[in-house]
């Protein structure tokens, strides 16, 4: 995660002192473990977000963490970052996300192959690309108990996904037909084939090349995919992009960008 953040901060024109907020996103590694704290509760207050600010030299940044949105975490963080920028004295917010499953955990979760990953995104006022057009999220609190509600979550996934994408795109003032690319979570190609059928869009407009190569990384999929799409020359200026994900917990989120 820190390596990704350093890479972003080293980009041309980026000044660490412009970063007013660091948003730390991790659903699985958000706090020191109770076991490590021993009998001294002070150890529980060793927060990774503030530590990241310290290690990245972000002397002007406030440290904030977001930990309970699962795979929706980074899209939510981007939305919060955009709102923060509206009132911030400083012109940028750095979102740093990452997750790794415990070494002894199986890497298949609810029919997904999971990868460990970290990524960073810098949001700037008047940024030259990837302008945010809309963000739409629906949390269905009944599904908070994932093991208990697993079957109901599986059943709810598709109808909720279709509704949230349709609403997100509509809020951006677009139709589904005007979306150039659906930037997916990398859970499974099959799930996107089904979702494309429900949305009535061609599955060719879903950028699926990283699903088999990268797998699902909790909340970093979209940023990894966007970076690879850009690197491979897939994106053209002005392209409308719909980023969709689902986070256990349970939140369905859609972020619409103009590249």
């Amino acid at each position: 995660m820190l390596a990704s953040a350093r890479s972003v901060l080293a980009s041309p024109g980026v000044r660490p002192q412009d970063v007013g907020t660091l948003l730390w996103v991790s659903g699985l590694r958000d706090r020191p473990s109770l076991a490590a704290a021993g009998d001294d509760p002070l150890h529980l207050f060793r927060y990774p977000a503030a530590r990241a600010c310290h290690e990245l030299g972000l002397a002007s940044a406030n440290a904030v963490a977001l930990s309970q949105q699962g795979c929706s975490g980074l899209l939510s963080a981007i939305h919060i970052a955009a709102s923060t920028l509206q009132s911030s004295e400083r012109p940028s917010v750095l979102c740093v996300a990452g997750d790794a499953l415990p070494p002894d955990a199986r890497s298949e979760v609810m029919y997904n192959v999971m990868s460990d990953a970290g990524c960073a995104v810098l949001l700037e006022r008047e940024a030259p690309r990837n302008r945010i057009l809309s963000f739409h999220q629906r949390t269905q609190a009944h599904y908070w108990d994932t093991p208990e509600r697993e079957q109901e979550i599986l059943a709810a996934y598709f109808p909720m996904a279709r509704r949230v994408i349709a609403a997100g795109v509509e809020r951006a003032g677009l139709t589904l037909g005007e979306v150039d690319w659906f930037v997916p979570h990398n859970v499974s190609l099959r799930s996107w084939q089904i979702l494309a059928g429900l949305l009535g869009v061609e599955v060719e407009r879903v950028w699926t090349k990283n699903i088999a190569r990268v797998g699902h990384t909790v909340s970093c999929d979209h940023v990894i995919n966007l970076a690879d799409m850009e690197r491979q020359g897939v994106l053209r200026p002005g392209d409308k992009l719909a980023l969709f994900t689902f986070g256990l917990g349970a939140s369905w989120s859609c972020l619409v960008l103009e590249h």
């Binding site: 269905q140 009944h142 109901e152 709810a156 598709f158 109808p159 909720m160 279709r162 509704r163 089904i194 059928g197 429900l198 009535g200």
Partner: peptide
Amino acid sequence: RYPQPDIAPLET
């Protein structure tokens, strides 16, 4: 708040 099922094309 269960979502209503979607009405899908047969192939989907």
